[in-house]
Amino acid sequence: MAAQRTISREGIEVFRFGPVATVLIPLLALFLQASLPLRFSTLNIFDLPLLVVIFFSVARRSPMAGTLTGCIIGLAKDSLTYAHQPIGLFGISDSIVGYIASSIGVKIDVENPGSRLLMTFCFYLLSRGIYQVLRNMAKQPIDFNWGHELGAALVNAVLAVGLFMVLDRYKQRG
């Protein structure tokens, strides 16, 4: 398994980001996510922090970094939710998404817009699925409208294609 991984790593490009981009891009995503729905309430369908997690994880191609990125951004999302809602629900789901995104980034071509669309669509649904399971585990079940979630996943996937193209400019070859 380790040998396979080494071979994969040798065959693909690994990117890194400057410290400013590493800090400011997630912060900006959180800020926009918390501010934009004030004026346009329908925009809360987007999950910008999750898209940032996916982007960083896929680009770095390091499962450990992806896990930690997902954990930190997820916990930040958690901390903006209702005060009596336990912290860690988004943290766990985004950690898992970050890990899987990094692992997939090692194995398949994730620079293609088509694969980015499909990948983000699936990761969004995975994130919501994990969140739902965790809410049930925490005895705080919520009624998911899966039709709505599928639509949201598609919208986020389309946004991700454009967003990732913008964020590609901040990549540095590792």
Binding site: Q33, S35, P37, L38, N44, L80, T81, Y82, Y131
Partner: peptide
């Protein structure tokens, strides 16, 4: 601001 998610 808002929570940024329709789940909360």
């Amino acid at each position: 601001g808002t929570s940024g998610t329709d789940l909360s």
